[in-house]
C-alpha cells in the first residue's frame, strides 16, 4: 500500500466534519505569510502603525486646541485627543485588516497563483481563508498594542479597562478581514477593488470618529449605526473610558456575525474559484 507521512496526516482527519474544506492547518498559511513578510518593505509596515499616530497628533492636539473639552457623559469631560484616540484605534484595526485581506488577497487570486499551489496540497479552502485572515489579525494585534502604548504614554488612558480595547481591536480586525476577503473573492478588476476604498474613507470620516453622533439628524444616526465601523468605535471608546455595560454586547455580536458570514462566503468562493 502506498503510504507517506503526508497521507497519514490527511487520513487522520477522515470523518471530521468539514474535512473536505478544512484540514486544521491554517497556521501553515500564517507561517507562509510570516516568511513573505520578513522580506517585505518596512516602510509599508511602518505606515500601518504611523497613520493613526499622525491623525492623533494633527487632529487630537492641533484641532483639539480649538475645541477644548468634550462632554461624553453628563458632567464628564475628556480632552479631544482622548475622545478620538479610541476611534483611531478602531479605524487602524479596520484599515490594517482591510489592507491585508483585500489588496493582498486580490493580487494572489488574480495574478500570483499562490492559492492554486496551496490548494493542490491536502489543505482546504477554509485553511487558506482562516490563515490569511489570521495573519491580518496578528498584524492588527501588534499595531493595536503599539498604538495603545503610545496613547498610554501620552496620558490619554485613565482606566485599566482600556486594556480590553486591544482584544476588541482584534475582534474588529477579524470582522473586517473576513468580510473584506469575502468581497475581494468576487472582485474581477482594479476598478472594482477601488470601490472598497470609496466605502472605507467616508465610513472613517462619518462614523463618529471625530465628533459625537448626536449632531446628526435621527435618520442619519440610524444609518451610521448600521455600519460596522460605528460599532467598532463605540465599543473601543466605551472600553477606553471604562464605561462597561450590557450595551456593549450588541457591538460584539455585530462583529461575530461579520466573521461568520465573511468566512462562509470566502470558503465557498475559494472553492468555486479553484476547485470547480
Amino acid at each position: 500500500m502506498i503510504t507517506s507521512a503526508a497521507v497519514a496526516i490527511a487520513e487522520a482527519r477522515i470523518g471530521r466534519p468539514g474535512n473536505s474544506v478544512y484540514s486544521g492547518r491554517s497556521r501553515a498559511i500564517i507561517e507562509r505569510a510570516y516568511l513573505a513578510f520578513r522580506s517585505s518593505v518596512w516602510i509599508v509596515v511602518a505606515t500601518g502603525f504611523l497613520e493613526p499616530v499622525m491623525y492623533l497628533f494633527s487632529f487630537g492636539y492641533g484641532v483639539g486646541k480649538l475645541i477644548g473639552k468634550i462632554e461624553v457623559l453628563p458632567g464628564h469631560y475628556i480632552s479631544y485627543a482622548a475622545f478620538i484616540a479610541p476611534a483611531l484605534l478602531a479605524t487602524s484595526a479596520m484599515n490594517g485588516a482591510i489592507y491585508d485581506a483585500t489588496w493582498n488577497v486580490f493580487f494572489k487570486i488574480r495574478f500570483d497563483r499562490v492559492y492554486q499551489g496551496m490548494l493542490a496540497t491536502s489543505l482546504g479552502p477554509m485553511d487558506v481563508a482562516l490563515g490569511e485572515i489570521g495573519w491580518a489579525l496578528l498584524r492588527g494585534l501588534v499595531y493595536a498594542i503599539a498604538f495603545m502604548s503610545i496613547i498610554a504614554g501620552l496620558g490619554l488612558i485613565t482606566t485599566p479597562w482600556a486594556l480590553m480595547a486591544i482584544p476588541a481591536a482584534v475582534l474588529i480586525s477579524f470582522g473586517f478581514a473576513a468580510v473584506g476577503m469575502a468581497v475581494t473573492t468576487y472582485m474581477k478588476s482594479f476598478e472594482q477593488m477601488n470601490v472598497i476604498n470609496i466605502v472605507m474613507l467616508p465610513m472613517f470620516l462619518f462614523s463618529g470618529s471625530f465628533y459625537p453622533l448626536s449632531i446628526y439628524p435621527g435618520w442619519l444616526q440610524a444609518f451610521i449605526k448600521a455600519l460596522p465601523l460605528w460599532h467598532g468605535v463605540a465599543l473601543i471608546r466605551s472600553l477606553s473610558l471604562g464605561m462597561i455595560s450590557a450595551s456593549l454586547i450588541p457591538h460584539v455580536i455585530y462583529f461575530l456575525v461579520m466573521i461568520a458570514v465573511g468566512l462562509f462566503f470566502t470558503t465557498r468562493r475559494l472553492t468555486q474559484l479553484f476547485m470547480r
Partner: peptide, 14 residues
Amino acid sequence: VSGPEIRAHLGVVP
C-alpha cells in the same frame, strides 16, 4: 468525496 486524502498522495506540477 476524499479530496484532501487524494491530494496528499499526489505531487502536482501545473
